[in-house]
Design a protein around this nucleic acid. Sequence first.
DNA 1: ATCACAAGAATGTTCGAACAAAAATACTAT
DNA 2: ATAGTATTTTTGTTCGAACATTCTTGTGAT
Lengths: 247, 247
Amino acid sequence: MSLQPVAVADDESTTLGIEIYARLRRDLIAGHLKPGERLRFRQLSSIYGVGIAPLREALSRLVSDQLVRFEGHRGYTVAPLSLSDLHDLCALRTELSCNALRRSITRGDEDWEAEILAALHRLERTPLPHSVEDRKIVDEWELRHDRFHYSLIAACDSPWLLHFCGALSDHFQRYRRGVIVVTSSSQELLKRVRDQHRTIAEAAIARDADRATAVLAEHFQGSVEVVIRNYEEVSLSLSAGNGDEAN
Amino acid sequence: MSLQPVAVADDESTTLGIEIYARLRRDLIAGHLKPGERLRFRQLSSIYGVGIAPLREALSRLVSDQLVRFEGHRGYTVAPLSLSDLHDLCALRTELSCNALRRSITRGDEDWEAEILAALHRLERTPLPHSVEDRKIVDEWELRHDRFHYSLIAACDSPWLLHFCGALSDHFQRYRRGVIVVTSSSQELLKRVRDQHRTIAEAAIARDADRATAVLAEHFQGSVEVVIRNYEEVSLSLSAGNGDEAN
DNA sequence: ATCACAAGAATGTTCGAACAAAAATACTAT
DNA sequence: ATAGTATTTTTGTTCGAACATTCTTGTGAT
């Protein structure tokens, strides 16, 4: 005769469609599903162990998320990666994230500051992967990295801006995943990135918007350069069939 | 024995899911389906004359478009409207559209200029509705208005920016639809809006980015004010059940 | 050999029915 | 009367099968 209701916190009222959407989304962003790859129903059905009804639902949503392409009667494919998309993505991400960071610096309270420091601490304590095969480690690093960047802009007080920043961040992760090992194997790069994270956090909390946004922009620009520098080498895994259309 | 292949241009390789997605999207943006309204499968199925499989596919995509909400085992509802959302929407729309307009003014060529003038001409020649019941006229005006605003930023050379501007524009239309008759019944408002359109177009083509963006921002701000001023009167149709959560 | 065309296989699309969960209603006990 | 519970009804979810389209393979004519 407990005083608490019987229902524990794991109820969550989920559906297969929602679950498979989340799983596909993760695998798409993590690059487990290769750009350009065809997403056949039977294949996915046996891999993920669900019927095609929830699969269609999930894939349909992913089309609007721009992670999957669809052609009537010809099925779904993983959205391709391209240099031009990368440039566009990063330019806008820099613009929007800096904008959101400025707003956050203006509006953020002590909890916002505390969350930044907490997220930064967790990120710094995460081991870096030595190989792309260290999926667990890569996943964990990406998760904490995302959370850190989210914590910076979380107080911007604009759901739409946060939503767009999130979408761009997710898409950029598809490019970054391919070179994270390269980054983590260079002591010089590693130090620079870590210093940038810390500098951005400190500047934000010190309400130095100019400095924070300047370093954030630099940080993004640096990531893009690493990706581009390694683009030729990884282009095989980037585009399985089509890939970049214009440059 | 024609030399052309038999298949004419109406093939289009479409599916029921795609069609119903487009129709639902239109009806959602046009306010045909009221904010907060439950979207029951049986009901939609009989209205639109399609099975629930394509319906689920379409609704699922619309969730990622932020036009409908979903709760597991409790179905889909039309996304609510709220004052706070309106403010957020418009602030970001102004920011992004002005940004895109600047880029367009820098990069646009003669075709871009020509398209702006063409779209402006078509917009000016569209009759304004005297009642919300003039659906055909409202639809046509909104279509041409959207096309005009799109033509301004079309040369910004950023697919992501265009995509976000489009999303914000679609969402804003949900708010504007309710007050278009109010606007068109005031000679003063009408003249101001028309002058703004013409001024923006001329400034853009004259490559006067500062003036073009200033008037564009003013134009958006004016629209928001009209919506807000009439918000109380139309709030009944805005929120059918829930609606605005904060403020 | 190459192209066009036809048959077959694979794949995507849609429906209807069975199933499960939630909401509404009816009922009982206090 | 009311709160709580059981029952019914409604609604959402999922699967499997039938259907349509596209892709692949195979055949034959030039």
